[in-house]
Design a protein around this nucleic acid. Structure first.
Lengths: 260, 260
DNA sequence: GATCGGGATTAACCTGTGTTGCTTTCCGAC
DNA sequence: GTCGGAAAGCAACACAGGTTAATCCCGATC
């Protein structure tokens, strides 16, 4: 069950067999949430670290007048802020999008983990920094890109993140998200999300039937959205030594130069 | 010179005299940057932690076609991501807005600091979590709020952040930022920023002459922008015991309940 | 295989914000 | 004080994206 988490962290560094064992033990079997159920609600006192083992969730904030903003998607392997329990209360909610399995790691167990396993601690730091970088990129996305670029950019990001945890095959992946949810995440209306997806299909940048997204030419989609993958920080040291056997991620992701 | 940093961290926790001494020593005299000069550029290898001692800076990203997005403002006391040196290269730039004094803390010194001073480490974690929260709120701001609400919200945030480090007096503070920079930060055009500021003035929510912002009724400005201060996490434990002598921050910031 | 309901799609119309281009004000340098 | 450049302010017009509302589609349920 911890496979996605391990794959994710191994994008940053090689983990030892022991590290993997520890991660597997600490995530356990996981707790299940139904679609639309909240894992955590704004105002709650944070008491544990949540790790997505399977399914999709999102972070969201609701304004007083009902408007909702999805500030991020969480896919398998993602974990919510380490050390979040320093804060008195959550300033946003986490909601299940699909059926979701979540490992709930209690504060004490988490602190022991980081104390004893420096390699994992480093990797978790990397994950935290990448998450901040993603949040920044979303800010850019909403502030500067047109609807067309914005949707394309989001789809690029999701594809690469899923690829990182082994959830793509060929040029396809599953995006189990409604257009209304895409709207809340992109700051567009559901109607305009629909129009925009049609446009992306019309020019052949994506194929999307049901929840299956196919990207015939990732390079082209990246160009169309001014996508620069550097913010995902996938440039693991030593990656070139064994690019082909890691997570199925080819060593040729555009924009990633060969490590020094 | 470290006064802003100390004030900032003391919003979260009480620091000992020794803690303060250490912070003062580690930040030193600081290096000066001219307006528009970059402290760090996208692509650089991060090698140190930067702390703003005086003046304003911003994080920004530039798209290939020239569009620029300011993803955050940095005011005195703010520090860039701890542990950023885990990453191979910066995915964004830091630019000086005014004349800026910056403490550049080398990796080794920083690691020693966090190793030896757990109270400071906790406080730095708090600062990091708040920064993530601010970035999320900016996502909400750009995605959901109208130009009017957006500007109002940004001004609320900046006012409260400045208040936290003692840079407000009465109902006023300095916002040494051009309308073009506000545009890059809010995802609006400079022309529309101007219109929006006029609107805010017209309804009496703000007064703004030169770089001096006055907020006659903060409560009203917050309401107009659907501002919920919870994401700034100013609810320090024990704050009520001595609210009046800390940083000049009244204990009555709207939305902050009395500590348990 | 009829019904139901959530999501996707479409159309017609509207408005908030962008664009262009100009004028005015401010402020530091000389 | 005046000169020059940057920032602020302003007006007219254009369009990306919002709004409303109706219809279509399809899988789940009985």
């Amino acid at each position: 069950m911890a496979i996605a988490l391990i794959r994710k962290l191994e994008q940053f560094t090689r983990l030892s067999a022991e590290d993997k064992q520890v991660l597997t033990e600490i995530t356990g079997r996981g707790r299940v949430f139904q679609p639309r159920e909240d894992l955590v609600q704004e105002g709650d006192k944070p008491s544990q670290i949540n790790v997505i083992l399977s399914g999709w969730a999102c972070r969201y904030k609701q304004l007083e007048d009902g408007r909702r903003s999805i500030t991020g998607f969480m896919v398998p392997g993602d974990l919510c802020d380490q050390n979040i329990f320093i804060l008195r209360q959550m300033d946003h909610s986490l909601g299940a999008i699909t059926l979701v399995t979540v490992a709930e790691i209690p504060r004490a167990a988490f602190e022991e983990l980081t104390l004893k396993h420096s390699r994992i601690t480093q990797a978790l730091w990397w994950a935290t920094l990448v998450e901040i970088a993603i949040q920044r990129e979303w800010t850019v996305n909403l502030g500067q890109r047109s609807a067309f670029e914005r949707m394309a950019h989001l789809l690029c990001e999701l594809y690469l993140r899923l690829q990182g945890v082994g959830l793509t095959r060929e040029n396809s992946c599953e995006i189990p998200v409604t257009q209304a949810e895409l709207a809340d995440a992109t700051g567009l209306t559901a109607v305009h999300v629909n129009r925009t997806l049609q446009d992306l299909r019309a020019v052949g940048l994506i194929a999307l039937k049901g929840k299956t997204l196919t990207i015939p030419n990732l390079e082209a989609l990246m160009q169309a959205s001014l996508f620069n993958p550097n913010y995902l920080h996938l440039d693991r040291e030593g990656r070139h030594l064994n690019a082909n056997d890691i997570n199925g991620v080819p060593s040729t992701i555009p924009g990633r130069e060969a490590p020094l």
